[in-house]
């Protein structure tokens, strides 16, 4: 693997772009990297470590600091679970409960049934997956064009993209709803999907990432070899963009899953996403906080699963080391 990486820059025009790219891609395989990882004397072995950026071993201090970060990050979610395992009455008392009570499953069951979370989870999965796939794909394409290609008005268009991020979107939901209503789409899932199929954030993010992470020389070399644009995208851009695509996918998925203002305006509980469905909880003059917390917990769980799926993809470093070296 390292041999492949090393020979690559020395023979820019000799092998076909495809071969080069595939070799380069193999460098990105986590499995391969793991195998190539020097077992002993890791710190000394640094010169042989190509690929995924720096991979120094974490010391005990690192683990300690990360543990602190982790505890602070997890605490509210854990407390949500604690609250979901109690009764509404107990939650009003001081000090608030700090450990689990016996009502978790009862409350989860109640939240699931009252909010009709089955349909909602299905809809949210559909919505969030579609938005994620489309945002990641189109952001990568546009971000690549902005980062590495020359075209008329590219500067102005990028500024326009960034500029629109500066205007808060909360008010735009009013004209947007009027429009969706004209299209006859009230309460339908596409009203939630279509407006967020692409985001200015995503395009700007990919642009900034690719400016740095994708060596221009690599594209040039592929061009010299006569590679067409789709081929360059497939074999050079996508592999290089993979860690950023995974992060963007992760962030977009969570955003789409948790987005509530527009979905609540646009949908109702007959065809809801999870955030819309959760509104069915806590009704009556005495909302049951424990059930509300159980709903919040249930709505977060699928995200944790999605995290595990995406999280593994955030391994990076393809061939840049070899290119620039």
């Amino acid at each position: 693997m390292s041999a492949g990486d090393l020979t690559f820059p020395q023979a820019p025009g000799e092998a076909g772009a495809k071969t080069k790219a595939t070799k380069a891609q193999t460098g990105g395989e986590p499995g391969t990297r793991a195998k190539a990882r020097p077992r002993g004397g890791r710190r000394l072995g640094r010169p042989r470590m190509t690929g995924a950026g720096r991979q120094l071993d974490a010391g005990p201090v690192t683990y300690a600091v990360l543990t602190v970060f982790a505890l602070v990050s997890l605490a509210p979610l854990v407390w949500t679970a604690v609250a979901a395992s109690r009764t509404d009455r107990r939650l009003a008392e001081t000090p608030p409960p700090l450990w689990f009570g016996g009502n978790l499953f009862k409350n989860l069951q109640a939240a699931w049934d009252q909010a009709g979370l089955g349909t909602a989870m299905f809809n949210s999965t559909l919505v969030a997956t579609t938005i994620t796939v489309s945002t990641v794909l189109f952001s990568t394409l546009a971000g690549f064009a902005f980062a590495k290609l020359r075209f008329r008005f590219s500067g102005a268009l990028l500024l326009l993209t960034i500029g629109t991020m500066m205007i808060p979107p909360q008010l735009a939901v009013v004209p947007l709803y009027l429009w969706m209503s004209d299209l006859g789409w009230s309460n339908r899932l596409q009203t939630v999907v279509l407006p967020t199929l692409v985001t200015a954030f995503g395009t700007f993010f990919m642009r900034q990432y690719l400016v740095q992470a994708l060596p221009t020389e690599l594209i040039e070399a592929a061009r010299v070899d006569g590679a067409s644009s789709p081929r360059i995208l497939w074999h050079v851009v996508f592999p290089a963009a993979r860690p950023a695509m995974a992060v963007l996918g992760l962030l977009t998925f969570v955003f789409a899953w948790n987005d509530f203002l527009w979905p609540i305006i646009a949908l109702n509980q007959q065809n809801p996403t999870v955030q819309v469905a959760l509104n069915s909880l806590g009704t009556g003059y005495v909302p049951d906080q424990a059930v509300i917390m159980a709903g919040a917990l249930l709505s977060t769980l699928p995200l944790l699963i999605a995290f595990l799926l995406f999280g593994k993809q955030i391994v990076g470093g393809i061939m840049q080391g070899a290119i620039k070296g």
Binding site: V173, V174, Y177, L178, S181, D182, G184, S186, N187, L261, I264, I265, N268, Q269, Q270, N279, S280, L281, G282, T283, P287
Partner: peptide, 27 residues
């Protein structure tokens, strides 16, 4: 009968106003 609930009144009422004026999507 189905109930559509929007628990936050500061979202419920703007939602209703928008939908009334759009002429569709009201309950």
């Amino acid at each position: 009968i189905k109930e559509n609930v929007t628990t936050r009144t500061d979202v419920y009422w703007p939602k209703v106003l928008t939908r009334l004026q759009a002429g569709s999507g009201t309950d």
